[in-house]
Amino acid sequence: MNKKYLNLLGLANVAKGIVSGETLIKSIAANETKLVVIANDASANTKKKITDKCHFYHVDYFIVDENIETISKAVGKNNRVALGIINQGFAKKIKELIGG
């Protein structure tokens, strides 16, 4: 897997193109989120909650090989289990880099 997408996550964050936490769930339901990236060590309950929302609202998602610490560090914040990319351009490029 290409790790360049982590750099893009950081750029997307600076460009205000990322949401997380409860805002992520609301953003998925409002069809604002284009792609969701979930850390591999997220709890089973969290993964299920987010992936169920993604399935229902037809949003692409990836459970990546990185852990919570790595994902959080990429965007410069603490304890980010999942990130929603709301910018279409960033979402498309990140999806390509992850392998979707």
Rank of each mutant, 00 (worst) to 15 (best):
M1K: 11
M1W: 09
M1E: 07
N2E: 06
N2C: 00
K3G: 02
K4M: 04
K4W: 04
Y5C: 05
Y5D: 04
Y5H: 11
Y5L: 06
L6R: 10
L6Q: 11
L9Q: 04
L9N: 02
L11F: 08
L11H: 12
A12Q: 04
N13L: 15
N13E: 15
N13I: 13
A15N: 15
A15F: 14
K16T: 13
K16Y: 13
G17H: 11
G17A: 14
G17I: 11
I18L: 13
I18E: 02
I18M: 06
V19W: 05
G21V: 11
G21W: 12
G21S: 12
G21Q: 09
E22G: 09
L24E: 03
L24S: 03
K26I: 00
K26N: 14
S27H: 10
S27G: 14
S27M: 08
I28H: 03
I28E: 01
A29K: 15
A30V: 00
A30E: 11
N31T: 04
N31Y: 13
E32I: 11
T33G: 03
K34F: 08
K34N: 10
K34A: 13
K34L: 06
L35G: 07
V36W: 14
V37C: 13
I38K: 07
N40H: 09
N40I: 03
D41I: 06
A42R: 01
A42D: 00
A42M: 06
A44Y: 03
N45Y: 04
N45D: 11
N45W: 01
T46C: 02
T46H: 08
K47A: 03
K48H: 12
I50P: 00
I50N: 00
T51Y: 05
T51C: 05
H55P: 00
F56P: 00
F56Q: 06
Y57L: 08
Y57P: 10
H58L: 09
V59M: 01
V59K: 10
D60P: 08
F62N: 13
F62L: 12
I63F: 10
I63C: 09
V64I: 12
V64E: 12
D65M: 05
E66T: 03
N67Y: 02
N67M: 00
N67H: 00
E69Q: 13
E69I: 08
T70I: 13
T70W: 02
T70Y: 01
I71V: 15
I71N: 04
S72W: 10
S72Y: 05
S72N: 09
K73W: 11
K73L: 13
K73T: 14
K73I: 10
V75R: 05
V75Q: 06
V75E: 01
G76P: 12
G76V: 13
K77W: 07
K77Y: 09
K77S: 04
N79F: 07
V81N: 00
V81T: 05
L83V: 12
G84E: 01
I85K: 07
I86N: 06
I86M: 04
I86S: 05
N87V: 08
N87W: 01
N87F: 01
Q88H: 11
Q88F: 08
G89N: 13
G89Y: 12
G89H: 12
G89D: 14
F90D: 02
F90Q: 03
F90C: 02
F90S: 00
K92V: 02
K92D: 06
K92T: 06
K93F: 07
I94Q: 05
K95W: 15
E96Q: 15
L97R: 02
L97H: 03
L97F: 12
L97W: 10
I98V: 15
I98E: 03
G99H: 06
G100L: 11
G100A: 07
